[in-house]
Design a protein around this nucleic acid. Structure first.
Length: 642
DNA sequence: GTAGGGTTAG
C-alpha cells in the first residue's frame, strides 16, 4: 500500500460525516481504487453489499472510470443489490461504444433472471438508452411492456428515455404517440402536474431532436414554438438542427432570437457556441464569429479542443487564416479533428506547403492522422500543384498507415493529377481503383478535361456522368460547354433542350457579403436589394474603369448562342461582382471586402477582381465553393492555379 | 437517474 493510501486508511471516519465510505470517496485515481478493492477483498468488506456498490459506483462513473475493470469488479461482488446492477448497466449505457450498449442490454437480461433484485425506475432509463444507442428496437419494445406492467410509464426519466429510444430508432410515429399521451394530462395544473411539466421540458427536447434527426425541420420548429418552456438545450437542439441540415441563415436567426429572450437563466453555453459556429463558417460571417469567440472568453466558457476546432474552422472559412493559426497554437489540447481543422484551413487558403508541414508535425505530437486528414492534405497538394508530394502522402496512407482508401481519397488524387495536366494518369487511376466511380470523381476528371482542352476524353467522361447522375447539371453543362467552344451551336441548343425536358437546371450562382454584422445575399442579375440602383451604377463605373485598364471580358464560359455584347452583359451581373460593388459603396476606403460564393469563381470574375483590387486599392477576399482567393494590388494568392 | 457538440473529395 502506498503512503497516501496509508494515511487514508488511518483517517478517522468521523472526519467524513457525509459519507459512509471515506476510503472510497477519497480516491483520486483508478490505481487507488484498485488498492481499495484489494483491501476490501482482504478484509471481506466486499461482502457488504453497500460498500461493494459504492466502490463499483466510483470505478464505473467517476472521471477516471474503467468500464472493463468495472465489469470484472461487478462479477466479483458476492451480493449484488439493485444499486450495483443499476450502476453497471448505467455505466455501460453511457459509453459511446456500440459493444458496451449491447453488454448493458445483456446485463439487464441477466438481472431479470436474478431473483433477489427487481429492475426499478433507475434501471429503465439506462437500459432504454442502451437500446437507443445500439438500435435494438425489438428489445426496446419488450422493455416498454415491462415499463407499463410496472406502472413506471408516468416517470419522466423513463418516459423521456423511452421516447428517445424510438427517436433514435427512427420511429417518430411511436415516439409521438407516447409524447401526445403524456401531453393530454398536461392541462391539469395542480402542484404535482406543474412539477411534472417542468420536468417534461426534456421530453419536448427529445421530440424536437427527433424531428431534427429525420430532417423534418418544419415539424421540429412547430413543436419548438409550442413548447411551454424552453431551456438552453431546447435552443441548442433547434440551432444545431438548422446548422446540421444546411439551414445556416435560420440557425443564425435562431441564435439571435435566443439572445432576445428575457430570461436571466437562458444564456448560450458551450454547446450553443459549438453548434452555431459551423453556420457562421459556412456563411463566412466573420464579425459574428469574432463575437462568439469573445463571448466564450468573457463568459469563461472553456476553449478546449472541441470549441477550438470549431473556432479554427470558423476563422479559416471566414478568411482569417492567421487568426486561425493563432487560436490553434493557443489551445491547451489538440485532437485529430483540431489538426484537421487547421490543415483544411491552410488547404483552403492555398498554403499547401504549410498544410504539409502541419501534417508532418502531427507525427511529432504523436497525433494519428485520420482518414479525413488524408483527404485534407491531398486537397492541399491538389490546390498547390504538388504532384510528387501528393503521391508520397497517398502512398504513405496505403503502405505505412494502411488506411482503407475511400472514394474521396481517389478523388483528390484524380483532381491533383488532372489540374497538373496528367489526364491519362488520372483516368487510369480511376479505372484501376477497386471502387465504383461516383459522380464527384467523374466531375473532377471532367473539370480536368475542360481545363486542359481534352474534348475527346471530356465527351467520354461526360457521357458516363450522364448515365450515372442523369439529373445532375454537371455533365450537360460540360458537354454544351465543349460544343460551344467548338462553335457547334446546334449541338448546344440540343443539349439545352434536353436539359429543359428533364427539368435540369444549373445551380444558381449566389454570393454574399457581411456588412456591419448583416449578411447581404445576391444572385445573378439580382435587383431585389434596397440599394439596387446605386449598386448598378457602381457596376457600370467599375466596368468603365476596368476597360481603361485594358480589361477584355472573357466570354468563353458563357454557354449561350448570343452575340458578344449580350455575353458581356451576363458576365457583368455575376453575383460576386454585385456583392463587390455593394461592398465598395458600403464601406470606407481600404476596408477589405470579404465575399463568399456558393459556386466556383469563373475566369472572368477572377480576372476582374484582380483589376478591381488594383483600381480601387482594396483587398478583396473571395471564398468560392472550394477555396480562398486573396486579391491584392492586381494579383491573386492562388497564383491563377485553382 | 433524463436532453444538446467540432473536421470530410468536383
Amino acid at each position: 500500500m502506498n503512503p497516501t493510501l496509508q494515511t487514508l486508511v488511518q483517517l478517522p471516519p468521523q472526519t467524513h460525516p457525509s459519507t459512509q465510505f471515506p476510503l472510497i470517496t477519497k480516491c483520486r485515481t483508478l490505481a487507488e481504487l484498485k488498492q481499495v478493492h484489494a483491501h476490501m477483498l482482504k478484509t471481506a468488506q466486499i461482502y457488504d453489499p453497500l460498500a461493494a456498490a459504492e466502490l463499483l459506483r466510483h470505478v464505473s462513473l467517476s472521471p477516471y472510470r474503467d468500464l472493463n475493470y468495472a465489469a470484472s469488479l461487478f462479477r466479483g461482488i458476492p451480493q449484488r443489490n439493485c444499486f450495483s446492477w443499476n450502476t453497471i448497466i448505467r455505466a455501460l449505457s453511457e459509453s459511446s461504444d456500440h459493444d458496451d450498449s449491447v453488454r448493458a442490454i445483456a446485463l439487464f437480461v441477466e438481472m431479470l433472471c436474478d431473483d433477489t433484485v427487481e429492475p426499478n425506475q433507475f434501471t429503465f432509463p439506462s437500459v432504454l438508452k442502451a437500446c437507443a444507442q445500439s438500435g435494438r428496437l425489438d428489445e426496446g419494445r419488450q422493455i416498454q411492456c415491462m415499463v407499463v406492467k410496472k406502472s413506471l410509464d408516468s416517470d419522466e426519466f423513463v418516459v423521456s428515455n423511452l421516447v428517445r429510444m424510438y427517436v433514435l430508432c427512427r420511429c417518430m410515429v411511436e415516439a409521438h404517440k407516447i409524447f401526445s399521451m403524456r401531453m393530454v394530462g398536461r392541462h391539469n395544473l395542480d402542484a404535482f402536474k406543474k412539477r411534472r411539466q417542468e420536468g417534461d421540458i426534456v421530453l419536448w427536447n427529445v421530440m424536437v431532436d427527433g424531428y431534427v434527426r429525420t430532417g423534418d425541420l418544419v415539424s421540429a420548429k412547430e413543436l419548438f414554438d409550442e413548447m411551454p418552456r424552453r431551456s438552453t438545450v431546447s435552443w441548442n437542439v433547434i440551432i444545431s438542427g438548422y446548422s446540421q441540415n444546411g439551414l445556416f441563415k435560420e440557425a443564425i436567426q435562431a441564435f439571435q432570437e435566443m439572445q432576445q429572450v428575457q430570461d436571466g437563466n437562458l444564456r448560450p453555453n458551450f454547446v450553443t457556441l459549438v453548434s452555431i459556429l459551423p453556420a457562421i463558417s459556412r456563411l463566412g460571417a466573420l464579425e459574428l464569429g469574432k463575437w462568439v469567440h469573445l463571448y466564450a472568453e468573457r463568459n469563461k466558457i472553456e476553449i478546449n479542443d472541441v470549441l477550438g476546432s470549431a473556432l479554427v474552422d470558423m476563422y479559416s472559412k471566414c478568411g482569417s487564416i492567421e487568426k486561425a493559426i493563432q487560436v490553434f497554437r493557443r489551445l491547451p489540447r489538440r485532437n485529430p479533428i483540431t489538426w484537421n481543422s487547421i490543415i483544411g484551413g491552410l488547404a483552403m487558403h492555398g498554403r499547401a506547403r504549410d498544410a504539409l508541414d502541419y501534417f508532418h508535425q502531427m507525427d511529432k505530437f504523436e497525433i494519428p492522422p485520420t482518414s479525413v486528414t488524408y483527404i485534407l492534405v491531398l486537397t492541399a497538394c491538389s490546390h498547390g500543384g504538388l504532384v510528387p508530394e501528393g503521391w508520397s502522402v497517398f502512398n504513405r496512407m496505403v503502405n505505412v498507415a494502411q488506411f482503407e482508401l475511400r472514394l474521396e481519397h481517389y478523388c483528390c488524387m484524380v483532381d491533383l493529377l488532372c489540374r497538373a495536366g496528367h489526364l491519362d494518369e488520372a483516368e487510369q487511376l480511376m479505372i484501376n481503383m477497386p471502387l465504383e466511380p461516383d459522380d464527384v470523381i467523374l466531375k473532377a476528371l471532367l473539370a480536368g478535361c475542360k481545363l486542359h482542352g481534352n474534348a475527346e476524353m471530356g465527351e467520354r467522361v461526360a457521357k458516363r456522368l450522364m448515365e450515372l447522375a442523369p439529373s445532375d447539371s454537371g455533365a450537360y453543362v460540360a458537354l454544351s460547354n465543349m460544343f460551344a467552344s467548338a462553335g457547334d451551336w446546334e449541338a448546344v441548343s440540343e443539349m439545352r433542350l434536353k436539359m429543359k425536358e428533364m427539368e435540369i437546371r444549373k445551380d444558381p450562382g449566389c454570393s454574399w457579403i457581411e456588412i456591419d454584422g448583416i449578411v447581404h445575399e445576391f444572385v445573378v442579375e439580382d435587383e431585389s436589394h434596397p440599394r439596387a440602383q446605386e449598386i448598378y451604377s457602381m457596376l457600370v463605373e467599375i466596368s468603365d474603369k476596368l476597360r481603361l485598364l485594358g480589361y477584355r471580358p472573357n466570354t468563353s464560359q458563357v454557354l449561350l448562342n448570343v452575340d458578344e455584347d449580350e455575353k458581356e452583359t451576363f458576365l457583368h451581373y455575376h453575383s460576386e461582382k454585385i456583392a463587390v460593388a455593394f461592398g465598395l459603396i458600403s464601406t470606407g476606403p481600404q476596408v477589405p471586402l470579404r465575399v463568399v460564393k456558393n459556386l466556383r469563381i469563373c475566369e472572368d470574375c477572377h480576372e476582374s477582381m484582380k483589376l478591381i483590387s488594383n483600381a480601387y486599392n482594396r483587398r478583396i477576399v473571395v471564398r468560392d465553393r472550394k477555396r480562398f482567393h486573396h486579391f491584392e494590388a492586381g494579383s491573386c494568392s492562388c497564383g491563377d492555379y485553382w
